[in-house]
Amino acid sequence: NKFNKEQQWATYEILNLPNLNEEQRKAFIDSLKDDPSQSANLLAEAKKLNDAQA
C-alpha cells in the first residue's frame, strides 16, 4: 500500500538526517507510526529541522 512505502521511505530518510538528535529522530518516527498518511509532511518537517541545526 502507498502509505506503507511512503512511511518506509520517510523513516529511512529521517534515520539518515545527520543533524537530528536521537530524541528528535525518535519523535518523528513515532509520529510516522501513529499516522503514516502524514509521512511526506513529517519528512519535510524533519528536513527543515535538520537544516536549521546544521
Rank of each mutant, 00 (worst) to 15 (best):
N1T: 04
N1A: 02
N1W: 00
K2A: 15
K2N: 15
K2H: 15
K2M: 15
K2V: 13
K2Q: 15
K2W: 06
K2L: 10
F3W: 06
F3P: 15
F3D: 15
F3I: 05
F3V: 12
F3L: 13
F3G: 08
N4I: 06
N4R: 02
K5Y: 07
K5N: 13
K5D: 14
K5F: 04
K5M: 05
E6L: 09
E6N: 04
E6K: 02
E6G: 04
E6V: 05
E6T: 04
E6W: 08
Q7E: 13
Q7V: 13
Q7Y: 15
Q7A: 10
Q7N: 04
Q7L: 15
Q8E: 15
Q8S: 06
Q8F: 10
Q8R: 07
W9M: 15
W9N: 10
W9R: 09
W9S: 07
W9Y: 14
W9D: 14
W9H: 15
A10N: 03
A10R: 03
A10P: 02
A10K: 02
A10Q: 04
A10E: 03
T11P: 02
T11F: 15
T11D: 03
T11M: 15
T11I: 15
Y12K: 11
Y12I: 12
Y12N: 14
E13Y: 07
E13D: 04
I14E: 01
I14K: 01
I14G: 01
I14S: 01
I14M: 06
I14R: 00
I14P: 01
L15S: 12
L15A: 14
L15K: 07
L15F: 04
L15T: 08
N16E: 07
N16R: 08
N16P: 01
N16I: 08
L17P: 00
L17R: 00
L17N: 01
L17E: 00
P18Q: 08
P18T: 08
P18I: 05
P18N: 05
P18D: 04
N19R: 03
N19V: 02
N19S: 07
N19T: 03
L20H: 00
L20I: 06
L20V: 02
N21P: 02
N21V: 06
N21K: 10
E22F: 07
E22L: 09
E23I: 08
Q24R: 01
Q24P: 00
Q24F: 01
R25W: 02
R25G: 02
R25P: 00
K26M: 14
K26E: 07
K26Y: 08
K26D: 08
K26R: 05
K26Q: 13
A27W: 15
A27M: 13
A27Q: 15
A27L: 14
A27H: 14
A27V: 11
A27D: 08
A27Y: 15
F28V: 02
F28H: 01
F28D: 00
I29K: 03
I29D: 01
I29H: 03
I29V: 08
D30M: 09
D30H: 10
S31E: 09
S31Q: 15
S31R: 09
S31Y: 08
S31W: 12
S31G: 14
S31F: 13
L32A: 04
L32T: 03
L32P: 00
L32M: 07
L32D: 00
K33N: 14
K33M: 14
K33Q: 05
K33A: 14
K33D: 07
K33S: 12
K33T: 12
D34V: 13
D34A: 14
D34I: 04
D34P: 02
D35Q: 09
D35S: 11
D35A: 08
D35W: 11
P36E: 04
P36N: 04
P36S: 04
P36G: 06
P36A: 08
S37L: 05
S37G: 10
S37E: 14
S37P: 04
Q38L: 11
Q38P: 01
Q38S: 09
Q38K: 10
Q38G: 07
S39F: 15
S39I: 15
S39M: 11
S39T: 12
A40W: 10
A40I: 11
A40E: 11
A40R: 11
A40F: 10
N41T: 11
N41I: 14
N41W: 13
N41S: 13
N41K: 14
N41M: 12
N41F: 15
L42D: 01
L42E: 02
L42A: 08
L42T: 12
L43S: 03
L43W: 05
L43Q: 03
A44H: 09
A44G: 08
A44D: 12
A44R: 08
E45W: 07
E45Q: 12
E45H: 06
E45F: 06
A46R: 00
A46Q: 01
A46D: 01
A46G: 02
A46T: 00
A46N: 00
K47D: 02
K47T: 04
K48A: 03
K48M: 12
K48T: 09
L49A: 05
L49H: 03
L49I: 10
L49D: 03
L49R: 03
N50I: 01
N50F: 01
N50S: 10
N50G: 02
N50A: 04
D51Q: 13
D51Y: 09
A52W: 10
A52I: 12
A52Q: 13
A52L: 14
A52H: 10
A52S: 13
Q53P: 03
Q53S: 06
Q53Y: 08
Q53T: 05
Q53G: 06
A54K: 04
A54T: 10
A54E: 12
A54S: 12
A54R: 01
